[in-house]
Simulated scan of single mutants.
Amino acid sequence: MPSREPACGCGRSGELSAPRLRRDSPERAGLDSGELRHLAQEVHDLTTGEHPWAAGVVVVAGRGPVIAVEEAAGWAVRYAAHDPETGRVVELPAESRVPMTVDTPFDLASLTKLFTAVAAVQQMERGTLGIDARVGAYLPEFRAAARHGITVRELLTHTSGLRPELPLYDCADDTERLAMLRAEAPLGVPGTYTYSDLNLLLLQYVLERITGRTLDVLIHDGITRPLGMLSTDFGPCPGAAATEDQRRPWAKVDRGMVRGVVHDENAWALGGIAGHAGMFSTGRDLAVFCRTLLAGGSYGPARILGADFVELLLTPPGLGFAVNQPWFMGELAGRGAAGHTGFTGTSLVLDPATDTFLVLLANTVHPRRQPADSSPRAAAATRLARSVIPSPSTT
């Protein structure tokens, strides 16, 4: 692996430092304490009952530089297995369970895409990557992408026409996986939205080609290290919340109970470092990430992006980020809120209009995946939206 080079953008001469996050009261943040008490209670309710939404949940929310809610509920590890014969979960004995804490790391799943997107926009800021450049200009050996003229913008906006995924986990080795990716042509109409992990995988290969460094190094040096996100990296992460008892037929590979290594089967087959999945982080670290973007790319003395390039990331339809999506943003949507969700139960939303952020992390796939239900994410975001106390200038 290439050596890590110094972090980018750490404090230009004459620049003021952006305020760091601090824990304080809702009132200090300009948020209604009653609404946030409801948010905290509803998070606990998500982990109770015979069929909880998730084994465990962490929520971190705030406004400006203030964290007003930081709450953990339930269990990081609750189950030993899923029994396919009875269709029931197998609970661990009480003494073997691991309680959820606000410091518990989670498998971020598709939230990894946001870090890949930021790494790409950093290269745009440096002038080494063109947003409308063709992928084939950087990766001529990716013959199908080159032949169809797929662009970097199309990868970041999921408009390349590539299918959602490929069964890379069934390939014999990396040579076969790479050959499959190189030969993959769009099935959909370019310019039409189709969410696809393959977009961010191709973008990973572009970034690694133009920089000569692997994606984990790029993200560490360019994002997590300058921001002091010490709990954020690609796995393995032994202390992470458990995910799935991963077995066929409900999963795509047979691995047993997964904890501390990436849940996504393709990212696992690729060695755990992938443009679409593979990273682990905590609620507090992701709050720093949100705060950095809300502050125009700076946090403390570090600057990871210029404000114009943050705007490029977050302007509809968003580059890597989803924008104005009520299905998980609730009432935060509709005014420029941006964010993403992850298959394992993770999500984040940042709202530039009110300078608020919400990180909701859960292990909803523990002990096995279920039909997606994002209503708790939307409800949490709605609570935060309703807690915002308008400033005198907006009333």
Rank of each mutant, 00 (worst) to 15 (best):
P2E: 15
P6C: 02
L16W: 06
R23N: 02
A29C: 08
G30S: 00
D32W: 00
S33C: 10
G34A: 15
D45H: 12
L46H: 03
G49Q: 05
G49L: 00
H51T: 12
A54N: 14
V59H: 10
R63I: 00
G64Y: 08
V77H: 06
R78A: 12
A81Q: 05
G87K: 05
R88M: 14
V89I: 06
V90R: 09
A94H: 10
M100V: 07
M100C: 09
F106P: 01
S110Q: 07
V121Y: 12
M124A: 12
L129V: 07
A133R: 12
V135F: 12
P140Y: 11
F142K: 12
H148L: 07
V152C: 08
E154I: 09
L156D: 06
T157P: 04
H158G: 06
T159N: 10
R163T: 15
P167F: 01
L168C: 14
D174N: 04
M180E: 11
A185N: 09
G188F: 05
G188P: 10
G191W: 10
T192M: 11
Y193F: 15
Y193W: 15
S196C: 06
L198Y: 12
L203R: 09
Q204D: 14
V206Q: 04
T211Q: 01
T211E: 01
R213I: 00
T214R: 15
V217T: 14
G222R: 13
S231N: 14
T232M: 11
C237N: 07
C237Q: 13
A242E: 00
T243K: 11
Q246P: 00
R248N: 07
A251M: 12
K252F: 04
V253Y: 04
G256M: 05
M257P: 00
G260S: 07
H263G: 01
D264V: 01
G275E: 08
A277K: 03
F280Q: 03
F280W: 04
S281R: 04
D285I: 00
V288F: 04
L293I: 05
G297A: 09
Y299C: 10
G300V: 15
P301N: 09
R303P: 02
I304A: 00
I304G: 00
E311N: 12
E311C: 09
L313K: 07
P316W: 10
F328S: 07
A333I: 09
A333R: 11
A337V: 05
A337G: 01
A338I: 03
H340W: 02
T341Y: 03
T344D: 04
D351G: 04
P352W: 12
P352Q: 07
A362D: 11
T364K: 15
Q370L: 15
Q370M: 15
S374H: 14
A379W: 12
S387K: 01
P392L: 08
T394F: 01
